[in-house]
Design a protein around this nucleic acid. Structure first.
Lengths: 208, 208
DNA sequence: GTCTATAGCGAGATAGAC
DNA sequence: GTCTATCTCGCTATAGAC
């Protein structure tokens, strides 16, 4: 039972909603760009708004405040990443390959990576608005990797002994984040994909 | 040939210089504390000055400006670290053991570690005042580790093949930085020393 | 060497017109 | 839905008294 039966009204409302959605996307794109360049703390709402082509009060019509803007940008990033790569698979081999595929995509298309790395780095201090979110993500990544290495071990494809799967998970997560930071500082001196692939190879007999 | 022969004047001047030096140290201690808690960007000169027990203008008598304060704090940290641990040794085994000893000290006494990690993280964005300094440090660490692994390889104590010493250096530096960040977020869930020792063991046959 | 006072800026957020 | 105008705040840095 629609609120209105007038098809012209519905169409107009639909168009408006689509335009608003497009506006929101443009603002989020601008925010990701700005955050990745100067960090969340270094970015002003006026800066984001200018990149998106509106005033900062116009921006605040679409998002409640600055932390809300960051949260929306992070949510969108994680939703799209989950769609693209199957980190949730039960199969450890698939997770290993997803890690490498994600690194290859990140090197080709580094905007999202830079955004996430910069915000992750900033959020090390507990007062940062994304601190809690990032700690949750860190724990989820560790759990995912632990499950993947455990699966490999049960299938006889694991060779990192005496490191346990949960220790190996910390190794893999730490090296990944550390290497991303090194790569962002000196992209010409590091082959990020090979660093990550090289470490995962030390943990499994599967060809990667 | 002293500027004055009056021993009382020399003594008074010496006492004053010592008091000033002590004041500078207190300010640097306060700055390291503040930076480690809320980061360089999140810290105001008023905050540092209050912790050190003087006004922010009084602080600016001892340091030229905010970037100058950060630089002085970083210089002091690296000078004291170089005194305490022999990272410059030609002997790869000594460097490996220094890395583990430094981690043990860091876990016991985490203030310096937290300061360095937070500033390292923040300085990922190029506009940060410590960006250049940290990139230099990153390259120096890589060179040091490459030399250490090369030394181990020449003495038949290296087992990370097919990883070359320079690749292993990136692995070691990245994992160290990444693990420090993980540990600072969830200190109870990670044994930082064992993570670092565990990785170095994968690279050498020496008992660590 | 340290202070008070203040200049000057840029930020986040709100009010109200259109 | 977007704007201009404004409020209020905190910051770095300087000037000048003591």
């Amino acid at each position: 039972m629609p609120l209105t039966d007038d098809v012209r009204v519905r169409r107009r409302v639909g168009l408006q909603a689509a335009a608003t959605e497009q506006r929101r996307r443009a603002i989020l794109d601008a925010a990701v760009q700005a955050f990745s360049e100067v960090g969340y703390n270094g970015t002003s709402l006026r800066d984001v708004a200018a990149r998106a082509g509106l005033s900062h009060t116009g921006l605040l019509h679409h998002f409640p405040d600055k932390p809300g803007l960051l949260e929306a940008a992070l949510d969108r990033l994680f939703d799209s990443t989950a769609l693209e790569f199957d980190f949730a698979s039960d199969d450890g081999v698939i997770v290993m390959r997803a890690l490498i595929a994600a690194a290859e995509r990140d090197v080709r298309e580094p905007t999202s990576l830079r955004f996430l790395a910069v915000v992750t780095a900033e959020s090390l201090v507990p007062s940062h608005p994304a601190h809690g979110f990032m700690r949750l993500m860190q724990q989820r990544v560790r759990e995912t990797l632990t499950a993947a290495f455990t699966d490999l071990q049960e299938r006889g494809l694991y060779r990192a002994d005496p490191l346990t799967p949960s220790i190996a998970a910390v190794h893999a997560a730490s090296l990944r984040n550390g290497a991303i930071a090194e790569w962002l500082r000196t992209p010409d001196e590091i082959d990020l994909v090979e660093i990550i692939r090289g470490q995962l190879r030390m943990f499994t007999t599967v060809e990667l």
